[in-house]
């Protein structure tokens, strides 16, 4: 199947875009020949040649090329490039674990119809995933504010919530798929010949599921990205946030800034200032759109492969 995927130009384009973004995100300081700490530092004021202050943040794209800066004077472009690796890796990881967990849970007892899970799936149809994740993460943050926990534990718990939100619908899809496969004649024969369950699952069920798994994985990555963007708007950042006080003494303005530099965090941080610095939120959103488009190209390629397989 992978060989066939190489014949789909759109899938290759999508794949190349994501890989190059990842590589660029890891090695941008040496590629662009800039110092990382220098590029991501806070810039209080903008000075002209004589050393006079000419402007305060946020700077427009024309003042600070290429893409302007946010409320703290940080370059949006460098932030987005630096955040790409976190965003992509978090989304990939969450999607992967969603698939792993749901396949694992389904394979424990593939013949049951998971009525408990089915109830939850029926209910989650009417609740947006972002709200679902929000109520869970919000109570997690409440708990964290009362009894502090380490950052790593917080990130792990948040990721677990993001994984858990997506698992119930996947279980119901997989349980249908696996049931259909287990009904096939050759599986019944294999059992009759005395093979163990684990062997059948590993040798017959999983290979038959594999194309479907890849497709669902790519779709899950897209959904995770959208969910992350929504949570960013709700000011929930993966990796926790720190409160920084902006403004002067008479009008202090507490602003939550995310600790990890992923794109959803950049969106959420600048969302309140949407009218003052539109570029600060449009840039990460455009990158989100481009990433999702690249993923959709890959999905389209896989679907084309499946269709040619059938005919």
């Amino acid at each position: 199947m992978i060989l066939k995927l190489f014949k789909q130009p759109q899938a290759i384009i999508g794949f190349l875009f994501i890989t190059s973004l990842l590589i660029f995100s890891f090695y941008w300081p040496s590629m662009l020949d800039v110092d990382k700490t220098e590029a991501l530092k806070l810039q209080d004021f903008l000075y002209d040649d004589d050393g006079r202050i000419i402007d305060a943040p946020p700077y427009s794209p024309s003042q600070v090329p290429p893409l302007g800066s946010d409320m703290f004077g940080k370059h949006i472009f460098y932030q987005v490039i630096d955040g790409a690796k976190y965003t992509i890796l978090i989304a990939l990881g969450i999607a992967l674990f969603r698939i792993l967990f749901s396949v694992g849970i389904t394979l424990i007892n593939p013949k049951s119809n998971f009525s408990f899970v089915n109830d939850i799936v029926q209910a989650t149809l009417y609740l947006p995933t972002a709200i679902l994740a929000y109520i869970f993460i919000n109570s997690l943050i409440m708990k964290q504010s009362m009894e502090p926990m380490s950052t790593i534990k917080l990130i792990l718990l948040q990721c677990l919530i993001l994984i858990g939100v997506g698992v119930p619908p996947l279980i119901s899809t997989f349980s249908n798929e696996i049931k259909a496969i287990l009904k096939k004649d050759y599986i019944t024969n294999t059992f009759a010949l005395g093979s163990k369950k684990v062997y059948v699952y590993y040798k017959h069920v999983l290979p038959e599921l594999s194309t479907k798994l890849v497709l669902l994985f790519a779709q899950q990555v897209v959904q995770t990205l959208i969910l992350m963007a929504h949570l960013g708007v709700l000011a929930i950042f993966i990796g926790g946030s720190a409160i920084v006080v902006l403004g002067d003494i008479f009008a202090p303005m507490p602003v939550a800034i995310p600790l990890a530099g992923e794109w959803a965090g950049i969106i959420g941080m600048n969302f309140a200032k949407i009218k003052a610095a539109p570029w600060a939120i449009l840039t990460p959103l455009t990158f989100f759109a481009m990433l999702i488009f690249a993923l959709n190209l890959i999905i389209q390629g896989i679907q084309n492969c499946l269709e040619t397989n059938k005919s």
Binding site: V222, I226, A229, I281, L285, F288, A289, I292, L295, N296
Partner: peptide, 10 residues
């Protein structure tokens, strides 16, 4: 189709 809803709103 691949544009996120948030993008369109903003």
């Amino acid at each position: 189709e691949s544009l996120p809803d948030l993008f369109i709103v903003v």
